[in-house]
Every structure is written in C-alpha cells, then in structure tokens.
Simulated scan of single mutants.
Amino acid sequence: MSSLLAGRVAIVTGAGRGIGRAHALELARHGAAVVVNDYGVSLAGEDTGETPAESVVAEIEAAGGRAVVNTADVADWDQSAAMVQQAVETFGGLDILVNNAGFVRDRMLVNTSEEEWDAVIRVLLKGHFAPLRHAGSYWRDESKAGRQRAARVINTSSGAGLQGSVGQSAYSAAKAGVAGLTLVAAQEMGRYGVTVNAIAPVAKTRMTEGAFDTSEMALPEDNSPIVAWLASEDAGDVTGRMIEIDGSLITLEDGWRHGESRDAGGRWSAADVGPALRSMIAAAPAPEPVYGA
C-alpha cells in the first residue's frame, strides 16, 4: 500500500461498478478508509437486488484496507446526511468526497419526457449537491471548532457537460451544472480548508457501452490516479479546476472566459447588434464541436 492517503477517510458515491469502483479501490490502495456507496440499481434505475458495494468492500478488506458499505440514494437529502455521518462514526471523520454516482436517459431533446429529464437532473445534479452540502457543513463545523481538515472534493462532470453531446440534452445539462457547482463550491468552501475540483473522465463502462463505440476507450481505472492525487493533502493549492482524463492524456479545461467585446457607448439599437456580433464571432476562436455533431 502507498501512504499518499494514509489516515484519511473518503466517501465514493456510485462505487459499486465502473469508474466509482476503480476510485474506491485506488483510494484504499493509497491508505484511505473508504465508505463505498452504491444504490444497487440497473442503468434504468430499477432495483436489481444486487449489492455491488459489498463486493468492493470485500476486495478492499482482502487487500488489507478498511471500507464499509453504504447503500444511500445520494439524491435523497436525509440519506446523504446519514452517509456523511456514517463516515464520521465509523472512521472518526471525513476528509474526501468523490461524487461519482451516474445515471443516463439518452434521448434527442424533442423525445425527452419530463420524467426522464427530472430523473437525470435529480441523480446527477442533486446527487452531487446533497452529499457536498452535508459534507461541507461538517467541514465548516470542524473548522469553527479549531479542527480544520485538509478536505477534498472531486466531482464528476463530462465532456458532454463541457462541449455538449447530441442525444444527451438532460445529461449534458446536468453535467454542465456540476461544473458550475464546482466553481462556486471551490470559492465558498476554501475558507474551511476544502478544495473542490472536477474531472471529466473517459472510460469503457456499462453507461457508455450502449451509447458509443467503446472499443478504443480507456479503462475505468485509468482515471483513478488523478482522483487519488486530488484527494491528497499535497493537492491543497489546486481548486476550482476541471480536468479531462482520456487514458494517458489529461487536459486542464479552459472553461468560459470573457472573449471579444464591443461597446456601443450607449443603448444598443437592434439593427447594430447583428454586425457587432458577427464581427466578434469572426474574431473569436471557433467553439469546441458538440459530441456527435
């Protein structure tokens, strides 16, 4: 075992399979005690009766690590609060939150139902907010009590949220929301010793296998070393960043920036807007292409 995360306590959501499982195993390998969260449902959100978190905990314990099962619905307010409390009561605190739990309802926008939209936004966006809110409250209280922790949050966005993805309007909107949440949380929570970053991982998982050609895609575990470092005390000077990971390639995303501008010197007339915007567009870099366009 590595000592990079020795003595630290982590929660990893959606950790029963795929990328989340790889994160949980990697954090444990570096010495962290891990709350392995997985709701145990199918891609369609249906109860399967499976308990994949138990298998991951067994793997961690067989390798000499410490872990505990959690089956909370991370988008449920009270269950998320109890998950944070479980980490504190079981392992004596909480230092790392990896928000990874995922959910898809891929449809072209005009075919997306209200129920599908609500379900995706609930799991992906509220499922990031609720654990972050409760963990943040714990870290704020610890800081005010003179026990400030070197806390780390790693959220999970996506290229779909950064550049958009045809056929994934709800998923793209939710993942863009995660990126915005990351920026705000990094600024608000820094005073309590918390860094908040996000990754945009690429990997062959059960979520991607039905939607894309995954033959050349990276493996889930290829993303986890970046998460392990971001979760370490050494990463205290890195916050509010989005890192895209595609196998051996990591990219620091540039995000929205103020670009070309024009000042009319007074209230714009509608007739002048078109020429001004077209001149700005002509002078600006072309946007990244939408996936699937």
Score class of each variant (00 low, 15 high):
Val290Cys: 11
Asp246Gly: 05
His258Arg: 05
Gln86Asp: 01
Val88Gly: 12
Gly236Thr: 10
Ala10Asn: 10
Trp229Gly: 01
Gly236Asn: 06
Arg267Gly: 05
Asp246Cys: 08
Ile243Phe: 11
Ala130Trp: 04
Val84Trp: 11
Tyr192Phe: 15
Ala170His: 07
Gln187Lys: 15
Leu94Ala: 13
Gly236Phe: 08
Ala28Asn: 00
Met280Lys: 04
Thr51Asp: 11
Arg107Lys: 14
Thr51Leu: 14
Ala186Lys: 04
Pro131Cys: 10
Glu46Cys: 07
Thr182Met: 13
Glu26Asp: 15
Gly259Cys: 07
Ala81Met: 06
Val57Glu: 00
Phe91Lys: 04
Glu46Phe: 05
Gly236Cys: 04
Val34His: 00
Ile199His: 09
Asp78Leu: 10
Ala81Lys: 13
Phe103Trp: 15
Gly180Lys: 08
Val68Lys: 11
Gly247Pro: 09
Ala151Met: 11
Ala151Trp: 14
Gly159Ile: 11
Leu27Asp: 08
Ala282Met: 00
Thr48His: 06
Val227Asp: 02
Leu5Ile: 02
Gly247Gln: 07
Lys144Gly: 02
Glu253Thr: 04
Glu221Ala: 15
Met280Phe: 07
Ser215Val: 01
Asp254Glu: 12
Leu132Cys: 13
Glu209Asp: 14
Lys126Met: 12
Ala235Lys: 03
Leu219Gln: 13
Ser157Tyr: 09
Asp237His: 09
Arg147His: 11
Gly31Leu: 04
Glu61Lys: 13
Glu46Thr: 10
Val98His: 13
Glu142Ser: 10
Gly40Phe: 07
Ile96Pro: 10
Leu109Lys: 01
Lys204Ala: 12
Gly167Cys: 10
Val84Ile: 13
